[in-house]
Amino acid sequence: MHIDTGSWHRYMALPAFLLFSLFFLFPLMQGAVLSFTDWDGFSTPSFIGFQNFVDFLHDARALQDVRTTVLFALGSAPLLNLCGLALALLLNKKFRGKQVVRALLYLPAVISPMIMGSIWYLLLQPKRGLFALLLQRVGVSGQGNWMLSSNLALVIIVLVNVWQYAGMTMVIYLAGLQAIPLEHYEAADIEGASSSQTFRHIVFPQLIPSLKINIITNIIGSLSVFEAILALTDGGPGYDTESLSIYILRMCYGNKTGYSTAVALMLFLIILIPVFISLRFFNKVEER
């Protein structure tokens, strides 16, 4: 039996897209409509036009959350990429126990996020955490409390986030490094290229797909951060370190479902801008 598959290749995205439409796109569009209502989550919603979006612009807590979110992303996205790339380059070399080291680096991301929170806090809690106690023992008595300074708290949250997810970024870079055809290395070897030359001319161009993926997913991931923050500061003190995603979650189940949808759409816009710019940049690089 022979099935003619001659023109199938043009429609190979359709099965994925149909399933995606059913379980994501349609519910999403239904949900997005709520951003124009005052829905509290249980009673009948009424249509209020763009009021939610106007409210957003006057919502001091939301605007502070935007600032926190953007600051976090500015620190987290580049650092994650740098660390992920460095780790991938390091672990692409051959040495005994490489497989185990890779698994170890990946480990922080595997631990259930539910318990991850308590573990990080056990380590880092001001005055009582294991690090604080260790510092005390070596004579550095911690008078300060990093959690009470929102900027310092953000720095620590960024570092923890990198610690936790650098392994995942590394995985994608590794996939990219592995995708470099062997002949390229061999050719470079034969021509006697130095290792920095090899990196510039052989490795780097081949890394562009993974670079693109990592930069874009890290922008998205960093701008929608919530787990790392919930674990370490719970957004506190007050709402000083709250991110926009946490705010959306809290509003959604705090009787402001309609408003939370509008804020979610605003977050979408905030994510869209840097992603759009990066995509344009990469399209140019790829064309060259």
């Binding site: 349609f26 939370s260 979610a264 869209l272």
Partner: peptide, 27 residues
Amino acid sequence: LNRTIFTILLLCMMIPGIINTVPLYTL
């Protein structure tokens, strides 16, 4: 067709998933 599909998927990657909770549950 493929370019449209890809753009839609990319955009959806950036939308906070919490929006579709209730409609998806109903579905």
